[in-house]
Amino acid sequence: MQQKTSHSPEDAVLSVEDLTTEFATSHGTLRAVDAVSLQVRRGEILGIVGESGSGKSVTGYSIMGLIDRPGAITGGRIMLNGVDLRQIGEEGLRQVRGHRIAMVFQDPMSSLHPMLTIGAQMVDAALAHRPIGRRQARMEARDVLARVGIPSPEERMRSYPHELSGGMRQRVSIAIALLNRPEVIIADEPTTGLDVTIQAQILYEVQKLVAETGTAVIWITHDLSIVAGLADRAAVMYAGRIVEQGTIADVIERPAHPYTAGLLASVPHRNRDMRKLPQIPGSIGNAHSIPGCRFAPRCGFVKPACEARPAFDEVAPGHRAACIVAGRFAQQLAEAAHG
């Protein structure tokens, strides 16, 4: 699954460039997503990792054009096969949503309409984009439900969401996302809150589906271990910015940013004493207002030069990090990360 290929924006299905999303709050403007760039290619899984408040979910919603007031996308381009989604208008976006880019939400309990049947909600999604009949839509819905591992799908389509378990509901959400065979699926922590076995099943099925359909996937999570097992490449976000991006091997084995190293260090690991997991001191807090490196207040490698915004430079081909020490402390970081 892991492959090292260069990823020029040209062969990416989706290429996000300098995306900036801001929210007007009573305390001024909050830049939740700050000049984020990322690409994902056909059949590739990109993991976006970050703690809550890092802007990873807002990045997902921004790509979908689902940012509501008081928020707005204020800069950058969102290129889907060479077309900027910011230029195609609301109706153009609607035709893209759920058809060419689909999204699975974090909370399986509240993303389905509580008073409509599963079947009705799936048929709706199909009919919104394709001139097929209701019968055809129902048949397709049933097939997709079966593909995501839902037993007796015909019967389930007549059920209401509250009659299904959390895991089943999330499978339904994933089925809805797959229904129109999108080019990109954005999955926003879809397995949070599910128990580990079901989580593993869903992850396995997603991997299988990507391999079969060639859909590109952006998997948003706070859990590095999920990304390590699932994704081809990873982008690490902190306080609205991507601080490191590279292949899974790059990011996990050779972290170039102190924050990534810290995240890795706090992941439970078979070779490590579970009781002594180190935590990164401090929290994101109001790091969004820091003009320079936003991780500096929590960083063990901090230098005076960190007061300027660090460049997002390559430390190796295809492996970038926004840190002035990135290239030089590779050895210490790897040690810090893997003990």
Partner: peptide, 10 residues
């Protein structure tokens, strides 16, 4: 669920 419905492209 309304946001999800919008994400479906309704």
């Amino acid at each position: 669920f309304i946001r999800f419905a919008r994400a479906k492209g309704l």
